[in-house]
Every structure is written in C-alpha cells, then in structure tokens.
Amino acid sequence: MRLRVEFTTEPFDLEEAPAHAVVAREVIQSAELDAVDVGPFGNTAEGGADAVLTAVDALLRKSLAAGATRVSLQVNVIGGSRESVESKEGEK
C-alpha cells in the first residue's frame, strides 16, 4: 500500500523557519519516502505505508518536542482501493 502525507506545523513565522518546522523538514527528507515536497505553507511526501507511518510518528514526536503547538496532517491511500489492500492483508 502506498500513502501520501500532507502536513503543516504551527505556529507560523514568515520571517524565519521555526525550529519545529526545520525538524519536521529534516524528518521527512531523511525518511525513506518518495516525492518529498517541502514548502513554507505545506509539505507532502509519498511512500510505502510502513515508511510513511514511521515518518509520521517521528514527525509528530520531534516537532512537538521542538515547540510546535499544532501539527495538521492528512494521510491518503494512493494507487489502490481499500478493498485491494484488505484482500492482500488477508493473503498473508
């Protein structure tokens, strides 16, 4: 299964990237993910389910520890239906 994560961290600072934003970017860029896109108003990355979920866990823990007061994220399954994922899990 492939996932796409989209996230932002707050509070925003338009003058300089806050520590929590820098940490979040480092976590995502160092993870084993595909199609990483970081920007000042939102970030996205894609990859296998295990890699994305591991990165999200690290992103939350490290961003909050670095001063984030809010982390907004969305995770979407891409490239397949939920039914095909469940049938593959049942084959294991």
Score class of each variant (00 low, 15 high):
1 M>D: 07
1 M>E: 04
3 L>V: 09
5 V>H: 03
8 T>G: 06
8 T>P: 03
12 F>W: 08
12 F>K: 09
13 D>R: 11
13 D>I: 13
13 D>V: 12
15 E>H: 12
15 E>S: 14
16 E>A: 14
16 E>Y: 08
17 A>H: 05
19 A>G: 08
21 A>L: 08
23 V>T: 15
23 V>K: 11
25 R>D: 09
26 E>S: 14
27 V>K: 02
27 V>F: 04
28 I>Q: 05
29 Q>V: 12
29 Q>C: 12
29 Q>I: 08
30 S>K: 14
31 A>F: 01
32 E>G: 05
33 L>Q: 00
33 L>G: 01
33 L>A: 03
35 A>K: 10
35 A>Q: 12
35 A>W: 06
36 V>Y: 05
36 V>G: 04
36 V>Q: 05
37 D>G: 04
39 G>D: 07
40 P>K: 01
42 G>R: 04
47 G>T: 02
48 G>I: 01
49 A>C: 09
54 T>G: 13
54 T>V: 07
55 A>S: 02
56 V>L: 10
59 L>T: 01
60 L>Y: 03
60 L>D: 00
60 L>E: 03
60 L>T: 02
61 R>Q: 09
62 K>W: 00
62 K>V: 03
64 L>S: 03
65 A>G: 02
66 A>C: 07
68 A>D: 04
69 T>K: 10
70 R>I: 04
71 V>K: 03
73 L>C: 02
74 Q>G: 00
75 V>P: 01
76 N>E: 10
77 V>T: 14
79 G>R: 11
80 G>T: 15
81 S>V: 10
82 R>M: 13
84 S>D: 15
84 S>F: 11
85 V>G: 11
85 V>L: 14
87 S>R: 15
87 S>E: 15
88 K>D: 13
89 E>P: 00
89 E>H: 11
91 E>K: 14
91 E>Q: 13
91 E>C: 05
92 K>Q: 12
